[in-house]
Amino acid sequence: MAELHVYNFSFQNLSQKNMSFTQVFQHIKRFMEKDRNGSYKLMFGTDSQVHSSYTRFITGIVIHCETKGAWACIRKVIIPRKMMNLHERISYETTLTEEVVSMFSEEKKEELINIILPNIYKGASFSIEGHIDIGSERKNKTKIFVNEMVSRMESLGIEPKIKPESFVASSYANRYTK
């Protein structure tokens, strides 16, 4: 019964609107099946932008293969107020990323790993990353949240990435927050 929640999410990209999680997962599987020897990274990240009367959050899902390019989509969430508190906004970005990551159950991850598993000795690989739109540089206002948000990603069993390596959040998702 808990799985029903998953299907209420709507994803989109430049060629498709209103995709269900099931459709997104099928796109990712088909992308990986094109090259079972590929080196794949499944990456997630969320960015936000405060507008005049609302805050827009965009979560990106990107499956990338070094030799075959990438397939990607986004999920949009609008909060009907200006979310000015930086910690609240960064924390909510991380929560939205966690929600999407959690849709990839152990069974789903296993399905993806099984695509490349017979070819790991030929160089095939699969990893999952959580991209967080924060940085640890001295001047970065978000550096005080790095340990907290990185720990949250690690608790999901995925590799956390912060700026400048968190491009799914800071570049791909960011493009759609405007």
Score class of each variant (00 low, 15 high):
I28Y: 00
S20R: 06
N37G: 08
F31C: 12
D47N: 13
I28R: 05
H27C: 14
S20L: 05
Y54H: 15
E33Y: 11
Y54M: 13
M32V: 08
T46K: 08
M32D: 06
D47W: 07
F44G: 00
N37H: 14
R30E: 15
G38Y: 00
I28C: 08
L42N: 04
R36Q: 10
D47C: 05
F25L: 13
T22Q: 07
T55A: 11
F25K: 15
D35Q: 00
S20M: 05
S53Y: 13
G38A: 09
F31L: 11
E33D: 08
D47E: 10
G45I: 08
S48N: 05
R36M: 05
T46C: 15
V24R: 01
M19E: 02
F21A: 02
N37I: 08
Y54S: 15
K29C: 13
M43S: 10
F21N: 00
G38R: 03
D35R: 00
Q49P: 04
Y40Q: 12
F21S: 05
R36H: 01
N18W: 03
V50W: 01
Q26A: 14
V24M: 03
T55W: 10
M19V: 04
G45D: 06
S48R: 03
M32W: 14
K41H: 07
M32K: 10
F21D: 01
M19D: 02
N37T: 14
Y40V: 08
M19I: 05
V50T: 14
S20Y: 07
K34W: 03
S20E: 03
Y54D: 13
Y40W: 04
S52V: 07
F44R: 00
D47I: 06
S20G: 04
S52K: 15
N18Y: 07
H51Q: 13
E33A: 12
Y54R: 15
T55I: 07
T55R: 08
S20D: 02
R36L: 02
K34G: 08
Q23A: 06
Q23C: 00
H27R: 15
E33P: 04
V24Q: 02
Y54V: 02
K34Q: 12
K34V: 03
K29H: 09
L42T: 01
R36E: 13
F21R: 01
R30I: 14
D47K: 00
E33S: 12
Q49H: 15
F31A: 11
K34E: 11
S39G: 07
S52F: 05
N18E: 14
Q26W: 12
F25Y: 12
F21Y: 10
V24A: 02
F21H: 04
V24D: 04
F44L: 02
R36D: 07
G38N: 06
K41E: 13
K41Q: 12
Q23S: 07
S52G: 08
T22L: 06
S48W: 02
Q26F: 13
N18D: 15
M43N: 08
N18A: 07
